[in-house]
Design a protein around this nucleic acid. Sequence first.
DNA 1: GCGACAG
DNA 2: ATCTTGTCGC
Length: 239
Amino acid sequence: MVITPELNYDQLTIAEATLIQQQLRGHLNLEPLQIEAKTIAGADISLDLYSETVYAGLVVMSYPDLQPIAYSLVKSSTIFPYIPGYLAFREIPAILKAYEQLPVKPDIVMFDGNGILHARRMGIASHFGVITDAITMGCAKKKLAGQYVDPGPSKGEYTQVTDKGEVIGYAVRTKDNVKPVFISPGHQMSLEDSLTLALKCTGKHRLPEPTRRAHEYVNRFRIGTLTEGYHEFDSRTLF
DNA sequence: GCGACAG
DNA sequence: ATCTTGTCGC
């Protein structure tokens, strides 16, 4: 089976999806970041319960300023159900459309989900990175795989998440006395890079800005406060 | 068989 | 993921 972005995920069996993940894993690159990031985007989807319609989008921000520059929103649909460990097959098709709609790609994409913090080291962030060759990382709100000890209560404290003897991510306290977030590299960055970026992207809230904004925008899109398409903020404010 | 289980 | 009221804490 040939893996391409055009492959139709909706009709795959779990066995086939697992095979694809194992195949993509062979293309993972976790070497240190090779660029100085100037932009980072958050990617996420929103949907109505029991609906096949999905509202996907990306919010591009300047880095390290973290000011919104532009966003891309696309309405699509998914048949593939949510199955822990296979989130990529449900969300990537829609996010890919929104990504392709961006005239200029962000240097890094942060996903609402995991990178290599996954049983087969192929969470949605890693999956997307490999098929598009983008630099990606994951930020999940709950643990999917591995073991860890709770990090200290202060913002900035973190512990390793390990699985089968290897470090696959970190449990990071992004806000005082608030549940940790799970960070891991997706593609083309190291474990350490993902941790550094996550901390540099987190401000006053639990979720790092890219993911937090993406979640906000796709939700507003679903509610009707924002419209489909590519939009950018007034360039005059950049002068 | 049992427990875990991103969004 | 989404639905939902109040409540606790900075």
